[in-house]
Amino acid sequence: DETGKFLVLALYDYQEKSPREVTMKKGDILTLLNSTNKDWWKVEVNGRQGFVPAAYVKFL
């Protein structure tokens, strides 16, 4: 149950560059965990948590 969690859509592919980031593919649906930083949002994708560039995702 994803109640209270926001979902975001990956607009572009992103390859993680550090262990704190996660890789996503364009079209992936991600669970948004934290968006307090304007540049990097914490998400969960494929069972992994990490950061992606905020400009690469949008709210569903």
Rank of each mutant, 00 (worst) to 15 (best):
L30D: 00
L32Q: 00
T36P: 04
K5F: 12
Q15P: 06
L33T: 04
G4W: 12
K38G: 10
L11A: 07
T23H: 04
W40A: 02
F51I: 07
T23G: 09
W41D: 00
K17W: 04
F59E: 09
N46M: 09
F51G: 01
Q49C: 09
D13M: 03
Q49K: 10
Y14N: 01
Q49I: 15
G50C: 02
Y56F: 14
A55V: 10
L9K: 08
T3N: 14
E16H: 08
A55L: 10
D28Y: 04
L30C: 10
G50F: 04
Q49L: 08
E16C: 10
K58V: 15
L32T: 02
Q15K: 12
E21A: 05
K17Y: 04
A55P: 08
E16W: 05
R48I: 08
F51H: 05
Y56Q: 05
D1F: 10
L30I: 09
Y56H: 07
S35N: 14
W41F: 10
L11E: 05
S18V: 05
V45P: 00
V22T: 06
T31P: 13
W40F: 07
K26W: 03
A55T: 13
Y56L: 11
A10Y: 02
Y14E: 01
V8W: 07
V45T: 12
G47S: 06
A10R: 01
Q49P: 06
K42P: 01
Y14I: 01
V57Q: 00
E2L: 12
T3R: 10
K38F: 07
K17F: 05
P53I: 03
T31E: 09
Y14R: 02
E2P: 14
L30G: 08
L11M: 11
F6M: 15
Y12H: 13
T23P: 07
V43G: 00
L30N: 01
A54T: 05
P53D: 01
D39N: 13
G27F: 04
T36G: 10
K42F: 15
S35Q: 11
P53T: 02
G4D: 09
A10I: 02
L33F: 04
D28M: 12
K25R: 14
F51A: 02
K25T: 09
A54K: 07
P19C: 08
T36A: 12
V57K: 00
L32R: 01
L11T: 05
G50D: 00
Y14T: 01
P53L: 03
V8H: 03
K25E: 06
S35I: 09
N46L: 07
V22G: 02
L33N: 02
N34V: 07
P19Q: 10
L60K: 06
E21N: 05
V52T: 01
K58A: 14
F59M: 14
P53F: 03
K42W: 15
F59L: 15
F51P: 00
M24Y: 02
L60Y: 13
Y14S: 01
K42M: 15
G50R: 01
V57R: 00
K26G: 05
N46K: 10
E16L: 07
T36C: 15
D13G: 05
I29F: 06
W41Q: 01
G50M: 04
E21Y: 05
W40G: 01
W40C: 06
D28A: 07
N37G: 11
T23E: 03
K17T: 13
E44H: 05
G47F: 05
M24N: 00
S18Y: 07
V52Y: 01
K58N: 07
V22P: 01
A10E: 00
G50K: 02
Y12W: 12
A54I: 03
K38R: 11
V8K: 01
W41S: 03
Q15E: 15
D39F: 15
V57A: 02
Q15H: 14
K26Q: 11
M24E: 00
T23K: 04
V57W: 01
K5Q: 15
E16Y: 04
L33H: 05
S35W: 15
V22R: 02
P19M: 09
Y56D: 03
Y14H: 04
F6N: 11
G47K: 06
R48N: 06
V57N: 00
L7K: 11
V43A: 01
G27N: 07
Y56I: 06
E21I: 03
N46R: 12
L32Y: 04
T31I: 15
D1Y: 07
